[in-house]
Design a protein around this nucleic acid. Sequence first.
DNA 1: AAAACGTCCAACCGCGCAACC
DNA 2: CGGTTGCGCGGTTGGACGTTT
Length: 238
Amino acid sequence: MGRSPCCEKAHTNKGAWTKEEDDRLIAYIRAHGEGCWRSLPKAAGLLRCGKSCRLRWINYLRPDLKRGNFSEEEDELIIKFHSLLGNKWSLIAGRLPGRTDNEIKNYWNTHIRRKLLSRGIDPTTHRPISEPAQETTTISFVAANTTKEEEEEHKITAGISNTEENIPDLNLELRISPPCQQPQTEPLKTGGRIGSVCFACSENQCSCVINGSSSSNGGYDFLRLKAGVSDYRSLEMK
DNA sequence: AAAACGTCCAACCGCGCAACC
DNA sequence: CGGTTGCGCGGTTGGACGTTT
């Protein structure tokens, strides 16, 4: 079983990229733009697999990358986002301009994990380590007849925390919709009070978001991220 | 001085998903 | 509608570099 390899391994370079390879890749993408990674290596005259080119470009060569140390502010943002999103590095990276998923993942594993542990916080659950393992409850808003797709959507909609591995569930309402012209009258999905927890304040009865003007378009000011979340793609795409 | 150990991070690997045929 | 292809993601690895013994 399995699939065919993504490229002809026998004739591709592996390991660290040389300056010349970098230059070729940059020149090619400048001239032709990103896309069709599979055919790019050949077209650019690189003996690399397309995936390798993509990775190199996204994680290292892209001109909009912010290299250098993470600020304290970025640290805290990453921690917040991780507590909500779990190991969704690409989503987290989407909220940190100039940072890549790989960079954040590495930084998390090398610095932030340790930082949280030193604060007595479990980096996986974001709960105090001394706290006894709690029975976590997954609140499901998925109707019995929901499709798999809908179920997936709900996974990022509600819940408290997850599961066997104590990975925090995604309790986000991510919507793809044009700006709503009318006040929302319908209860949020499936009648559950999904909209009752404020992610910005972590309070149930917070009024800053849910009841405020920001909810008029049917979305949350998730961690004060309103601007970015109005378009789901902008949250997901780097 | 050098061996052992620890840290960091670029790159690779395998898988899931969606688009395409 | 099922198989194939390509992309993107998260997890893992390996080697360079720094620190300690």
